[in-house]
Design a protein around this nucleic acid. Structure first.
Lengths: 206, 206
DNA sequence: TAGATTGTTAATCGATTAACAATC
DNA sequence: TAGATTGTTAATCGATTAACAATC
């Protein structure tokens, strides 16, 4: 399949999690307007997204939930999942670890890294914490394709370079360092301060 | 001034932080292409954003950094700043607290809330942690207009309702609960799992 | 003046929504 | 059949980028 729009991919992730929460009960089918209401989207948007991933429903019963979940899972994480590394085990790193280990996904954090000796070789949410010097080695051994950067901003660029050199194809950057790796690596940056300042600006206008 | 586009506001926040980092040295002026390069944007985009906020520069020297910082600050947080409350002092809450207290902004977290007795009446990054029962009272007393929600997802809706009832006009929601408050409240949601799944999808295509 | 830069409009690109035919 | 729903195209909206005149 060709590349899906970014926004559609984001919504697929949300549909999927919402459906996982609602399945297993007596409910096997769902209408586009029901799924839309759960997430405050519009029914048209839901149908369009499902169209883009080649899902079809029946006018009588709606969409088969189990089928949706399966298809979305394959599209998002690939059939067999992907392995993820977390670099930087501070407050934010630990929060992310807990957050991700609870959920239902084929994505899995399989290694953590830090440079603080107190943290190394301890377990954290079922995952061992290595010294950052071993990054390259562990990444290759564990076949890790995605990295999450939670180190202090000054160290982010260096960590990102090592990740890319070790074959990582996607990076989620939580620092304020602005990275850039052309087309070889998909980069997603999240900046809390920017989010909060955006809220500040628009909240004044209400 | 009329409402700025969301994306422009996001970039203003980033320009501003970058400029704060680069000012105070010998450099008093900056060209659009220099600012663009620092953030991996394009010079045209920088100039257009500055145009939208009514900033002008000179062809010889570029833009006056001090002036940009001042103007952006007034636009983003308003002249006298805004007060922020943080609800839920887990790992994520603590990470956000540290993160925000370091930075240069008129936004300030002035109160934290939790329901865990061990955390109540302790200080955290210079801010007292109250019991969530006191939410409404403290918010009004401290003139808080923005709330950050970091509680477990099941409690998010109830917390959000209290915030809105206490006069909050902007919410930054870090839980997976999907909130909705029409036009009265500006709502920004951040969903880590969606971000990571987006990275997973696009990293496969590289 | 020539070259670099700003400021702005028009064109393009991407995402959402309106409209509606087809189907159960 | 009538009513509700799906599936899809065309129109609209918003954001970015190309093009270029004006200025130092």
């Amino acid at each position: 399949m060709n590349l899906l729009p970014e926004k559609t991919v984001e919504r697929l992730s949300q549909y999927r999690r919402m459906l996982l929460k609602h399945y297993c009960k007596e409910k096997q089918f769902i209408f586009s307007h029901e799924l839309a209401a759960l997430l405050h989207f519009t029914p048209v948007q839901v149908r369009r997204d499902l169209m883009l991933i080649g899902c079809s429903g029946s006018q009588r019963k709606g969409y088969d939930i189990k089928n949706l979940i399966k298809l979305m899972g394959e599209i998002i994480d690939s059939k067999y999942g992907q392995n993820v590394a977390l670099i930087g085990v501070g407050n934010l790193g630990r929060a992310i670890m807990r957050y991700l280990n609870k959920k239902n996904s084929n994505l899995k954090i399989v290694a953590a890294f830090d440079i603080n000796p107190d943290k190394i070789n301890k377990e954290l949410g079922g995952v061992n914490c290595h010294h950052s010097d071993e990054l390259s080695e562990v990444l290759k051994k564990e076949n890790i394709t995605i990295g999450i950067i939670c180190v202090p901003a000054e160290q982010a660029l260096q960590v990102a370079d090592s990740l890319v050199k070790s074959g990582v194809k996607g990076i989620l950057n939580f620092t304020t360092a602005t990275l850039n790796f052309g087309d070889d690596v998909f980069l997603e940056e999240y900046d809390m301060i920017t989010s909060l300042e955006k809220v500040a600006y628009f909240s004044k206008k209400r």
